[in-house]
Design a protein around this nucleic acid. Structure first.
Lengths: 344, 344
DNA sequence: TTGAAAGCGCTAACAT
DNA sequence: ATGTTAGCGCTTTCAA
């Protein structure tokens, strides 16, 4: 009677435990544990009986209990910025491949570019005791992670560095890439070049803007502040910004787009514009080759892979001070960036 | 001495527990639990002291222990097919939004289109005792999930139905969408229409092929088997297939692409082809509007949202037999599908 | 080769 | 309002 009640309102929807398996197989609890974990010291015959009981009962080890006892979860967390942004697909996939190669499970979630949500998510993952954390920051203050890192959670930042704490980071060369892209436009005769990017609070945005300014300065070109438009990457905002740059009294003749979201909208806006305007975008986009869009490409998969490998090296005990790895970018000339400046 | 040792080789990298917090705050364990979980019955002053201790120690509740005790994890798992496929970004994001609205965390991983990996991943999530599971199947036999479902793991399949078990599923109308797309090509005068899709084992692939055949049959058109090319969606395979269809003795004048991966490659191949060939693709693609690609669009976000809502309804106790929900598709005419058949 | 007992950190049930 | 006790399902330790 009591036994029935116990199994009826059982918390895990009536799941068999190792104890149940042991009872059914007529062996001790520890023997089941040995079989389940592939530990040695069990005769083939006993093992067979245990497997039979496992099959019959549909037993699956409860990893929560295991984790509680062992302390390690063989799980790493990935805090993305936006799951729907195609840039993060390959990155996330690369992380997952590396995690898999190390026998770890990857949990990921996205912050939707909201710093509070980033924190909430990262801490939720820590509460579930992930062994390590890979974070694409939305915010610029990561001191909330200090206790976690001190407690031993390996942490690597990707795409953007951590704010106000010292931590490993794997980044693309936003500054150098933007400088190269803008120089490319200058080399094609442009002197009035617009920059449309995302919020300056975001590290990559700021770095790319810095690259733009550096390229202009190196060429001895002035930058008029109305050529620089920073803000959300929503189509509405970007569309308005691009139109503004093109309809000013002295319109720009070329555009540098600060990231892939901006590039996509800029291409749409420019397609509706009567005269050709040169464009170079940061980040590659699918089908950009067919549309002839010149871009500064970063290797999203390499970012993810590099970060994940560093994470597992830390988990394997690698010490040393936090490091920053910067991966190079590549200018892919496809047409839009080679439109010459109108003469005069 | 013993205390020091205990904290030094502590399993969670030296993490404080509720007991530690209680000791430091000079209160009982349960009081800490109350504060951490926002339960009533604690005076403001006590609460303050507890919070202080939590801050000082950098305490974070161990959710593994919590889960072990409570049985519910407030976590749902999502088994994707390919994280890098842009189709799944919005889907995954929609699922996450719904999960969040229900106070649950989303764990996702991808099967890389490998049935074994799908199983491994799904079972790993079950071992971590997710409350529910949303699966985009890679395989066609899901009997391995039967014990889990019986044990109470709510399970919903998306994009493709479950194989050999009866379970909730949310699908796009692949058959109807493909039929509409092919009919559209027929309406523009095409009679020799090629179909390039993925492996016929995959449900959506089979359904879309069926839609193609239905449209052809309704128009009284024969289907020559060499017009149908099924297989991997790798660029190499698709490129070869499309070229084959175009260079046959009686080449096709129009193409139906079975999914977004095929469409992308087909567009590239057709761009290099001397004469215009009509194309309609299943799934929308970013920038397809600018390239004038006619597609049969499905709503990836709606798929994810619908599936997640159903999952949580099940978790909230909704009973009844498994249901299949089919969401409609929409033909977006943008040019490539309206290229008329060459006369003669 | 096998098993019994202790305990991981938390919450539920029951005192006080 | 607060504390004590038992126990979630597993692994670790130690004994048989």
């Amino acid at each position: 009677m009591a036994a029935i009640a116990r199994r009826t309102d059982h918390r895990y929807g009536n799941r068999p435990t190792m104890k149940d398996v042991a009872a059914r197989a007529g062996v001790g609890l520890k023997t089941v544990s040995r079989v389940v974990n592939g530990e040695p010291g069990v005769t083939p015959e006993t093992e067979r009986r245990v497997h039979e009981a496992i099959e019959a009962l549909g037993f699956r080890r409860n990893d929560s209990a295991r984790v509680l006892r062992k302390g390690r979860t063989a799980t790493v967390g990935l805090v993305l910025e936006d799951l729907a942004d195609p840039f993060y697909g390959p990155l996330s996939r690369a992380v997952e491949e590396v995690a898999r190669a190390h026998g770890a499970l990857l949990i990921n979630g996205s912050s939707a570019e909201d710093p509070d949500r980033e924190q909430e998510l990262a801490l939720a993952l820590c509460a579930r005791r992930v062994d390590g954390l890979i974070v694409i920051p939305a915010g610029d203050d990561h001191r909330y992670l200090e206790p976690e890192i001190r407690a031993g959670v390996a942490t690597v930042f990707v795409d953007r560095p951590a704010g106000r704490i010292d931590a490993d980071a794997v980044l693309s060369d936003s500054f150098g890439g933007a400088r190269e892209g803008v120089s490319h436009l200058i080399a094609h005769g442009h002197r009035r070049i617009g920059f449309v990017g995302d919020r300056p609070r975001i590290h990559t945005g700021a770095e790319r803007l810095r690259g733009y300014r550096a390229a202009m300065a190196e060429a001895g070109l002035p930058v008029r502040e109305e050529w620089v438009s920073l803000g959300s990457t929503s189509p509405e905002r970007v569309n308005a910004a691009v139109r503004g740059l093109l309809t000013a009294p002295e319109p720009v003749t070329a555009l540098f787009a600060g990231n892939n979201r901006v590039t996509v909208t800029a291409v749409r806006t420019l397609a509706a514009h009567p005269s050709p305007v040169a464009l170079v975008g940061f980040d590659d986009i699918e089908l950009a080759d067919l549309l002839g869009i010149t871009v500064v490409a970063q290797d999203a998969a390499a970012l993810g892979r590099t970060a994940a490998e560093r994470l597992f090296r830390r988990l394997d005990g690698a010490g040393g001070a936090p490091e920053r790895v910067v991966l190079g970018t590549k200018l892919l000339a496809r047409g839009s960036g080679e439109i010459p400046a109108p003469t005069g």
